[in-house]
Nucleic acid binder design. Sequence first.
DNA 1: ATCGTATCCGGAACGATTCCGGATAAAATA
DNA 2: TATTTTATCCGGAATCGTTCCGGATACGAT
Lengths: 142, 142
Amino acid sequence: MLSREAIIQKLKENGLKLTSQRLAIVDVLIKKGHLHPGAGFIYKEAKKKCPSISLSSVYANLNELTRSGIIKLLEFDGKENRCEGNLEEHINLICEHCGKITDFEVPVTLNQKEITRKTGFLITNNRLEYYGYCGECTKSKG
Amino acid sequence: MLSREAIIQKLKENGLKLTSQRLAIVDVLIKKGHLHPGAGFIYKEAKKKCPSISLSSVYANLNELTRSGIIKLLEFDGKENRCEGNLEEHINLICEHCGKITDFEVPVTLNQKEITRKTGFLITNNRLEYYGYCGECTKSKG
DNA sequence: ATCGTATCCGGAACGATTCCGGATAAAATA
DNA sequence: TATTTTATCCGGAATCGTTCCGGATACGAT
Ligand SMILES: [Mn+2]
Ligand SMILES: [Mn+2]
Ligand SMILES: [Zn+2]
Ligand SMILES: [Zn+2]
């Protein structure tokens, strides 16, 4: 996750105003980003410091933050989408039982240039995820 | 993609009846599986051989086929989900411009056991995707 | 041929997300 | 500071892929 200063820097670069709603969302991401929070969670948290905030503003801001390269959105079907604040190359370990998403850092530099050379496909983004059961859920299931 | 015989074998193993709707869907997957078709496409194609088929049956069957390990579902937000018939470990190259999904075969056996040893996370499934622009779209954009 | 049960259909319901139009406020300008 | 511009906000309706429902159908075992 970028620092608060770096985020504000990027917001200004992209001509985005520093509204109380936007800053409240940014602060939630900084504090709770490791949880890969969804829009609903962010909405509830941001409402504490900015009671007037609306859910549509949360969605709009998450899209803005994504466009500005501050976060990524992890898309899921049926479930809520989740925010990714860790922009380093890593694997998300997603528990099928409790939904927790934890980062696993590992320099997986699959040779992207080789893929482009062989297929002509120009890579701009990727998604690496392992699904399964987290330590806690594995234990509790025996 | 499994062979038609292997699929029928698995269907029987799982106690699933060989209805005309189910077989029509299986045939679409066998013929067009490399396109990673979505529910809407499969519905239209299957309707050619089975005019009475309903969209809800397509959805229900795709879920059954997933439970039986015949396909996987690739989940996307906003866009339709897509079917994955290639059960081998590979990377999906997803074009951001035309939506085409092509397979890139590469034995990416990231050491899953090491992840489990280090984190206690039990891996049962994964998702490896590269997003970007396919060869055709890269050309046409100059 | 009969029967039990999975599967089917059509349509309503669902839920996360997006869209809308009028109100608000950030911040540039004077 | 007052004015102006314009991004952003809010609340609620709309969207759309997917799931759920209840009654009808048909597979395939006996
Ligand atoms: Mn992560
Ligand atoms: Mn594939
Ligand atoms: Zn868990
Ligand atoms: Zn393309």
